[in-house]
Amino acid sequence: MSAKLAAAILIDGVIDASWLFIVAVGLTLVFGVLNILNFAHGSLFAVGAYAAASAAGWYYGGDLGPPFFGYLLMLGAALAVAMILGPLLERGILRFFYRRDEVVLVLVTYALFLILEDATKLIWGAEAYYASEPYALLGNVSFFGLSYVGYDFALIGLALIVGILLWFGINRTVSGKIVLAIIHDRDISRAMGVNVNRVFALAFTLGVFLAALGGAFTAPKISVQPGIGITVILLSFAVVVIGGLGSVEGAAIAALFVGFARATAIHLVPWAELFIVYLVMALVLAFRPEGLFQRMSARKI
């Protein structure tokens, strides 16, 4: 393998890993706190992408102000999606299903996925949206004679910021410690006076925000159309399962795993691209049945 090819795989892998991490860490956070593996996460990614693409299309279409302001607008779109859908889904639907078996909860979110897929089609229609202006805004970067779009590197930066903020928020703040307590044992936390319902609603909304954020900032790179949610949920699903459900560090490492696996497949064995991720996942689970960073849990008889 030539050095150039290796560099290409490395860089493509990290770029792929960046948006995957942003999306997957939301999924793993929601699982950690609420014990729900959210199948609708990919749909929330799609809603974020549509919202950002619409906002960017409106902003750049009308030439309304300085081009860089478009990024803030995309962030705002993701935030708006989270503020609306997070509380709506958690307080409106999910809370009626807590304490059910975790597999039943997967099905509940599968139902939400079906509903959200149709809802996005109703709102945004079936045609594709393109918002490529923000993608070209940061110019090109060249590495080892390979040309890359600057936006992709900004995305890596965004993923790093998200990861650091989350790590800091969970491990170094009081509210983060409360979240950790709930992850460890929600019944005891409730007995200690923690408002578990409030934390659930906030954590779920944060999860929705991360999905929408991933969608919003991926939107300029892709054509936003029905079905993107399905691809994304399967990939981020694989990431969180490989990393260990509920683990932020695990999600980061697994996102890199998956990113490199995909980049390697695309460059070397293109026909394996469709399933390489699941192969990696099956292999990791074969040796670490609960993922790379599995949670300790006491055996209850």
Partner: peptide, 9 residues
């Protein structure tokens, strides 16, 4: 599909 989802819920 959405109707099926509601039904399932």
């Amino acid at each position: 599909q959405g109707a099926l989802g509601v039904f399932l819920l």
